[in-house]
């Protein structure tokens, strides 16, 4: 017997419109948990220069939102996470084209900086509307589409690292690798940072996990106590490096470490780091 599946129709135009709005809001409004973490850090920071920088970052968020100005002139590559319910049906257009069109529209309407170049190692001509976006799609149960827009700036993205550790290096190996990577990055990725970690899976799986880890609200630990303990230890070690806000010295080098772990091969221990500057932007919508 055939059972007719209940399918919900979602118009491509509505997806494009939602993406256009998300790109703008993400660039103008700092996430609440980030703002709260910056305020907390400002109170705790003993370095006078570091404290003043944190004050200006909080002020920057106020000015950006009040004037519809991007928080940072680097309005990022548009990284889009799509959760597509298996019972959702996109009509009147192509899903990926709708997302890309929405990015172009959002970056143009919002006076956001267009930073994408076509050919990465020779011509490097600006595409003019910040397309193409980087789209990660996941099929999930349900009849909805969830869209998360994460404009990712290059200063922090450029510090990303991947290590394929030997399994025997274990927890200590992960800590050494991460602490060293943050130390070497120094002032460049615009501390205070949010460190996204992907542990396990494969090389590309770990990198995607690291990026997704950035979406968690600041200060919310991993629900697994063992991973949460690793996050806490890493945060303490990183803040002991002395780098401080913008690298001028201080105890606020990172606001959070967010780690995600997945099963891996008997011979593997992939560890991916995605650096996120304090200007941690992401907004989401559900259609």
């Amino acid at each position: 017997m055939l059972i007719a599946a209940k399918v919900r129709e979602i118009r491509a135009k509505d997806i494009a419109e939602a993406v256009a709005q998300l790109c703008q809001r993400a660039n103008f409004e700092l996430e609440e948990s980030v703002l709260a973490a910056l305020k907390q850090a400002q109170q705790n920071e003993p370095s006078p220069l570091g404290k003043e920088i944190l004050r200006q970052l909080i002020d920057n968020a106020r000015v950006a939102e009040a004037k519809n100005l991007p928080l940072c002139q680097d309005c990022g590559s548009a990284v889009i996470f799509l959760e597509v319910g298996q019972d959702a049906h996109v009509i009147d257009g192509d899903l990926n084209e709708a997302v890309s069109g929405g990015v172009g529209q959002g970056y143009t309407q919002g006076y956001l900086r267009k930073s994408m170049v076509n050919q990465p190692f020779s011509e490097r001509k600006n595409t003019g509307d910040n397309t193409p976006p980087i789209i990660h799609t996941e099929i999930v149960p349900g009849d909805h589409i969830r869209i998360i827009c994460l404009p990712k700036g290059a200063g922090s993205e450029n510090m990303s690292r991947l290590a394929m550790l030997r399994p025997g290096e274990g927890r200590e190996g992960i800590i050494d690798f991460v602490v060293r990577a943050v130390d070497e990055a120094g002032a460049n990725p615009c501390p205070p940072l949010i460190i996204g970690l992907g542990i396990g899976a494969t090389s590309e799986g770990a990198m995607l996990l690291a990026k997704k880890a950035l979406l968690r609200p600041i200060g919310q630990p991993n629900p697994d106590p063992e991973i949460a303990a690793l996050e806490a230890e890493l945060l303490a070690r990183i803040n002991g490096l002395g780098i401080g806000p913008m690298g001028v010295g201080g105890v606020t080098t990172a606001l959070a470490v967010h780690a995600e772990a997945r099963p891996t091969h008997i011979a593997c221990l992939p560890v991916a780091i995605n650096f996120q500057c304090h200007c941690a932007r992401h907004k989401e919508a559900r259609l």
Binding site: S47, R180, R237, G240, L241, G247, V248, G249, G250
Partner: peptide, 15 residues
């Protein structure tokens, strides 16, 4: 160098 000075002052980690 501001970065060297600042880090030296607040560093606890040996690295």
């Amino acid at each position: 160098d501001l970065f060297e000075q600042g880090r030296a002052q607040y560093r606890k980690e040996k690295g």
